[in-house]
Amino acid sequence: MEWRQIYKPIYFLLFSVIFFFIIFLCAEIFFYNDQTIKKFSLSNPEEYELEQNIFLINNGSSCINRLEVKVAIINNNSPWQFVENININPKPISIEIDDIGNKIAYFQFDGTKANQTVEINTKYLLRIYSSSFDIDPNDKLMYRSSLEEEYKSYILPEKYIECNSDEIKKTSNEIVGNTDDCLAIKKLYDFVRKHINYTKDSVICKGALCALKNKQGDCTEFTDLFIALCRVRGIPARFITGFVEVPIMDKIISHNWAEVYIEHYGWVPVDPTNRLFGVKPNNYVVVSYGRSIESLNGKFFYFFKILDYNKTNDLQIIHSQEVKIKKA
């Protein structure tokens, strides 16, 4: 019986350690969830029926032996966007998720005759919530060296987001100064929405640097400049392409906005074009991430490629997209 007396204190100590560890873990989970609830909220779920039609017309005089098409497919964007049903016609050869989370469908059409139209029809049933972040302007931002690997690409320069430009660096640093908390993001947002004059479907001005110099652009340039200014300061920011349902106009339009990554908040929506900071209404539909989507050869919604073994010179494609939306 002596061995029981010897090991009894050890058992008690081990049990105590395990017990207090479980209590500590539960407390961490509780307080984390409580903190998240205070900083983020969902409301007003809305269901939509969205239909997207892509038309590709062979406008040449010869048959196209093979036509390849890639299409960005609307995906779940938890916790505010859910695809409850999807119907794609014709059925794609494959659907893959690219390196940055875009869902890409691949189609192949053989023997497209002159004047023939190829159509890709996709119907969705979507459930979308309004989301709102209660951002404390005094919360400190992460330093570049502290960023996890998955966020580091979102502080680098890329085509149209010239955060390595001396002029953009100078502007960003002048706006923010010594601010190292969330107020810095708000300052950059305020600058962009006041600095750029909205010009519908801008063709003269492309990219962040052009928008900064010419003070004009559409939603794409608003987003480019905001992202570039954030990246100068080491704030991860990414480009969003999607649709916005406009009830007063009874239609849906394509739109661009941004998301910034803030520790303890996650990816926070920012739309300087429509004056929305930390808020995404339930009429915003996310389609894809990225300014120049590599899997779509730099395009936003779809990309097509002609493969013709006869190598004729008069192969032409007229392409268009039609999108309809209504409340379910």
Rank of each mutant, 00 (worst) to 15 (best):
Phe191Leu: 09
Asp218Cys: 04
Cys230Gln: 09
Asn102Glu: 02
Glu148Cys: 10
Ile248Pro: 03
Leu188Asn: 05
Tyr289Met: 09
Asn274Leu: 14
Gly266Cys: 03
Asp218Ala: 05
Gly266Ile: 08
His195Lys: 14
Ile37Trp: 07
Pro247Gln: 04
Gly234Ile: 04
Ile18Gly: 08
Lys140Met: 15
Ile235Trp: 08
Ser288Asn: 06
Glu294Tyr: 06
Ser292Gly: 02
Lys305Ser: 14
Leu229Val: 09
Ile29Gln: 09
Lys91Pro: 03
Gly207Gln: 00
Val83Glu: 02
Val260Trp: 10
Asn283Pro: 02
Lys311Arg: 12
Val69Met: 02
Asn178Lys: 11
Leu229Asp: 13
Trp80Phe: 15
Asp136Ser: 12
Lys327Tyr: 12
His255Trp: 01
Glu47Ile: 14
Ile37Gln: 13
Arg127Asn: 12
Tyr32Ser: 12
Asn274Tyr: 13
Ala27Met: 07
Met142Ser: 15
His264Cys: 11
Lys251Asp: 04
Asn310Lys: 12
Gly242Ser: 05
Lys187Asn: 12
Phe107Pro: 06
Val279Arg: 06
Val83His: 02
Ile95Phe: 09
Asn87Val: 10
Tyr32Cys: 07
Phe300Pro: 00
Gly177Glu: 11
Cys26Trp: 13
Ile6Asn: 09
Asp190Arg: 11
Phe226Cys: 02
Leu14Phe: 15
Cys26Tyr: 10
Gly101Ile: 06
Phe304Pro: 01
Ile88Val: 11
Asn53Arg: 15
Trp267Tyr: 03
Lys299His: 14
Ala208Met: 07
Gly111Pro: 00
Phe191Ala: 12
His195Asn: 13
Val17Tyr: 11
Ser131Arg: 02
Ser61Gln: 13
Phe82Ala: 08
Ile23Met: 12
Asn283Glu: 04
Tyr129Ile: 03
Lys152Val: 06
Arg275Phe: 14
Thr273Val: 08
Pro247Leu: 00
Pro9Val: 13
Val323Gly: 04
Cys63Gln: 15
Ser146Phe: 14
Glu46Trp: 02
Ile86Gln: 07
Ile120Lys: 02
Phe226Glu: 01
Leu50Glu: 04
Leu229Lys: 08
Tyr151Arg: 09
Thr273Arg: 04
Tyr265Glu: 01
Ile18Asp: 06
Lys39Tyr: 07
Leu14Lys: 07
Ile29Asn: 08
Ser94Tyr: 10
Thr122Val: 13
Leu229Ala: 08
Leu229Glu: 07
Val260Gln: 11
Phe301Ala: 05
Phe21His: 08
Tyr160Ile: 00
Phe55Asn: 04
Pro45Leu: 04
Thr241Gly: 11
Arg233Cys: 13
Ile54His: 03
Ile227Lys: 09
Tyr160Ser: 09
Arg144Ala: 14
Glu47Leu: 11
Tyr7Ile: 15
Tyr198Gly: 01
Ile104Gln: 05
Asp136Pro: 10
Gln321Arg: 13
Lys169Met: 09
Pro137Asp: 04
Cys210Glu: 05
Gly278Lys: 00
Phe243Gly: 12
Gly60Ser: 05
Ala27His: 06
Val71Tyr: 01
Ile227Met: 06
Tyr32Val: 10
Ile204Thr: 15
Phe239Thr: 00
Asn274His: 14
Asp139Leu: 14
Glu158Asn: 07
Cys182Met: 12
Asp110His: 08
Asp180Ile: 05
